[in-house]
Structure formats: C-alpha cells, structure tokens
Simulated scan of single mutants.
Amino acid sequence: MSPVPHRFSVRRFADTLVTQALDDALCSGRTTPILAISGLQGSGKSTLAAQVVELAGGRGLRAAALSIDDTYLTRAQRQRLADRVHPLLATRGPPGTHDLPLALDTLDAASSGQPFHLPRFDKLADERVDEAQWERIDGRLDLLVFEGWFLGTPAEPEAALQTPLNALEREADADGRWRHWCNQTLADDYPALWRRFDRLWFLQPPGFAVVPQWRWQQEQALQQAAPGRSGMSRAQLERFVQFYERISRQALRTLPAIADRVIALDAHRRPLQA
C-alpha cells in the first residue's frame, strides 16, 4: 500500500454538493427532516455532515449531526453479547453492536421537537462517552444529519453467507454463527431505523480495496488529535476492517439502487461528478 501522509484530513466537499444535500433534505416536507449519509469507512461522511450543518447554520437554521457510531453498545454490553452469542461480538461495528433503542429514541425525539441529548462514543477508548457530557438539544431542529458506514443496507441472502469472505471469518467464524447472527439482526432490527430517514445519500468508493487505506488514515488522524492516547496499530486495523468487509461489500452492491442520491468517489475521495 502507498505511504500515508503524517497529517491527514478529508478534503471538504464542493459548496455546490453541500448545498444540494441541504436543499434536498429541506424539500422532504418534514418539519425536522433526517438526512442520512451512508458511506464506507473513511469516505468523508463526517466531513459532509459537518458541512451541511455549517451551511444550515449560515442560513439561520438549527441543525445537528449524529453518527450511528455514537450509538454503539458499551464495552460491557458487547462483552455480555460476546459471552452469550459469539466472541466476535465484543468488537464494535457489525450489525448487532449498536444500541438501537437509543438510536431510535434520539431520531424520534429530533423529529418530534422534544428535548434530547446527542450520544457520543470515544473510539480510542472504545467506550461510550459518559452521558453527562452529551450535548443537550432544546427546541426543534430544522435538520438532523445522521451518518454511518452502512446506513440503509439490506441483509444478504442466506446462501451468500456459506463461504467465509476473509481470514477473520475463516479463522474465527468457521461455522458461520457470527455472520449469520449479524445478518439476521440486520434483517430484523435495522429496517426500523432505516425507515426514519427522509433522504439517503450514499458516498460510493471505487471498491472495498481502498477502505483499509482510508481507515488507516482516519486512525492516524484520531491519534494525532489526541496525543498520548493509544489507538490501533496497522496490523490491528487490517484485522479490524475485516469485521466490516462483508456488510461493506453488500452496501456497495445494493445502495446505488436504494439511495436517493449516489456520489461516486475516486480513490482520493474526490467526487467524480460535481
């Protein structure tokens, strides 16, 4: 793989694209629309979400952003799940490792104009931030931007689960229990969350092969932003990305036909069309 620059940040998206995203959400007809931005790891979801919120603020609107990553189960909750179902569920990421009642309650409160708090998750600590530190939102928002790496993705057919996809599945999920459980959870529990979206945008990378590099750059940025705190090594990250690979490839196959807008990206995260 190519060398990674010491300093890294995802380039900002063009103002025209950000304007289109905001206008598309506001045209939904909802008092507080939910704009979902889906995209694989490192694709620029958080950057686009922040720009949309910034533009909304510049127009005098109240907007906020939330990531599905901020609704991960706590480490203790994931460990209990790992003990009960499969050891791989101790690792955050795949379907089943999110606190869906928390996510649903947050989106519903935003939609109804009720006061609520924005959950936050500390990825370097691999733990949910204490609730006392969550931002409180009082009064109705004009927009909530919800971003996440597999938003809107449907479950795979059972036949697709038979063959292990990577070394993680071959070595740690040889009997397929973990991937079948995650896929069933995706089929049963996540559609209720997807139905909360008023608009779904998909940042489409050229393929899954770019994701390990993008996620490594993201990991470096996290560590540079918090000197003295430990994160993942390159080897640990290469294994970590394998937890996401199956659903990521499913997203690449299905979301272009599901999303309201698809933004194709090149290997440097640049949109191929303005």
Rank of each mutant, 00 (worst) to 15 (best):
L81D: 04
A82M: 11
R59H: 02
I37L: 00
A76T: 14
G57V: 14
S43W: 12
T71K: 04
R78F: 10
L66T: 09
L48E: 06
G39K: 11
T47V: 13
Q79C: 14
R62Y: 11
A49Q: 08
D69Q: 09
R62M: 08
T47Q: 12
A49G: 03
G60V: 00
Q77G: 14
T74Y: 01
G60C: 07
L81G: 09
Q77T: 08
I37N: 00
R59E: 03
R80M: 08
G39L: 10
D70H: 15
A56S: 01
I68C: 03
R75D: 00
A49V: 09
D70V: 09
H86E: 04
I68V: 14
L48M: 08
Q79S: 15
Q41V: 01
R75K: 13
V85Y: 12
H86S: 06
R78G: 13
D69F: 09
G42T: 08
A50K: 12
L40T: 03
A56Q: 02
Q51Y: 03
S46N: 04
R80Q: 14
D70P: 03
L66W: 08
G42M: 05
R78V: 06
D70G: 12
Q41A: 07
V85E: 15
G44R: 03
Q51K: 05
A50T: 13
E54W: 00
T71Q: 06
I68W: 00
A63P: 09
Q41N: 08
A76C: 07
L61Q: 11
Q79K: 15
S67Y: 10
G44Y: 02
D83W: 14
H86I: 07
G42E: 10
Q79I: 14
R62D: 06
R62Q: 14
A49L: 01
L81T: 04
A49T: 02
H86C: 02
G57E: 14
V85W: 11
A56R: 03
Y72Q: 02
R62G: 08
L66M: 07
L48V: 01
G39T: 11
Y72E: 00
A65V: 02
D69N: 13
L40A: 11
Q51N: 00
